[in-house]
């Protein structure tokens, strides 16, 4: 009976042919980008699922946003768990993206024919950080509000599109109730849609292009069942980690924004600490530019370098590898300095 049903569905869905193709497809038996990429997608899906649930009780209104989060944690069944998973998964999501990027960079997987995969990945990093960041604004607590102000002001110093990005984030020239609306719209609509599209393109590209630079040089396994089972085990582990964090380390809700209160210390999320640290410790003027403009300009140059990387990297040259290592070290040092 069960066999009949399976056969009925397999014939109609074409799963048999798909599985055959996956059985035939070989991937390295162990590859960091593969697993970190898989974990990123898993965490993304986890956040889409919990995020959709959180959209139901959340209120997009400066007067009641914070109270609605208190209600989610205090009254909604499993609300505390959902919010905990969503918040912790966002941190792990950014961390997994960074690990993925670092591993691709160090293993030099961005090279031809993977240029498009690399470029889509860079876009995904931007979208992913944007997702995590806009999420910190939604509780409309003091830190989120200050973040919306400080970080958008900083982005406004960026070259060419700075002013546009700032207005887009703020929903006007100043931080107003519309800023919360924009953050919500980006967080739940624009960015998830963009991320979904980019993830699909990115994954299809990975799948289409052979990621193996030199087939036969490393031991390989078929995508199905070997890699699928291992990936499933990794996802179960990540899920257990997220749920443990969500259960035992409560994410603070923060005090509701009180515009009469004196300006407090803004604590940016850890993945943006480096930029704040750079701007904060720089002299006020560098080469005739305000330090924020200079730092944003320099970061844009790093971005341009990353975009051009697959095209300027020559086989045999190790310079790009060293540049990548230096960038990772600088990022780590700045973050560590800001934390300590």
């Amino acid at each position: 009976m069960e066999g009949v049903a399976r056969k009925w569905f397999a014939e109609r869905l074409g799963t048999g042919a798909l599985l055959e193709r996956l059985r035939a497809r070989q991937v390295p038996s162990f590859s960091v980008p593969q697993y970190t990429g898989g974990v990123v997608i898993f965490l993304f899906l986890l956040q889409v699922a919990t995020g959709i649930l959180l959209m139901l009780p959340y209120r997009v209104d400066p007067a009641s946003a914070n109270a609605s989060i208190e209600a989610i944690v205090g009254q909604v069944p499993f609300g505390s768990l959902m919010r905990g998973i969503h918040a912790w998964a966002s941190h792990l999501f950014v961390a997994a993206m960074m690990l993925h990027l670092a591993s691709v960079l160090l293993l030099r997987r961005y090279r031809a024919p993977n240029e498009l995969v690399w470029l889509l990945g860079l876009l995904l990093l931007l979208v992913g950080v944007g997702l995590a960041f806009t999420g910190t604004i939604l509780p409309w607590n003091e830190n989120g509000y200050l973040q919306a102000r400080v970080s958008s002001e900083m982005l406004g110093q960026g070259p060419v599109f700075g002013g546009f990005v700032k207005r887009l984030l703020r929903g006007g020239d100043e931080v107003t109730p519309w800023t919360l609306n924009h953050a919500y719209g980006f967080h739940t609509g624009v960015l998830p849609a963009a991320a979904t599209l980019l993830v699909l393109l990115h994954t299809v590209q990975v799948h289409r292009r052979a990621p193996l630079a030199d087939p036969g040089a490393v031991p390989t396994i078929p995508v199905y069942p070997d890699f699928a089972v291992r990936m499933a085990a990794a996802c179960v582990g990540v899920m257990a980690l997220v749920v443990s964090l969500a259960t035992f380390v409560p994410v603070p809700i923060g005090e509701a924004v009180d515009l009469r209160a004196s300006v407090l210390n803004a604590q940016p999320p850890w993945y943006l600490l480096f930029a704040h640290e750079l701007v904060g410790s720089a002299p006020p003027m560098i080469l005739g530019l305000p330090s924020a403009q200079f730092v944003l300009g320099a970061l844009s140059l790093v971005g341009l370098f990353a975009v051009g990387l697959p095209f300027i990297d020559r086989r045999g040259s190790r310079i790009t590898l060293y540049v990548g290592l230096v960038l990772i070290a600088v990022w780590g040092l700045l973050t560590a300095h800001a934390v300590l």
């Binding site: 069942p225 070997d226 089972v229 291992r230 499933a232 085990a233 582990g237 257990a240």
Partner: peptide, 11 residues
């Protein structure tokens, strides 16, 4: 997790 690891070893 254990079952999946065993399954991976089995395949």
């Amino acid at each position: 997790f254990v079952l999946l690891v065993l399954k991976a070893a089995q395949v």
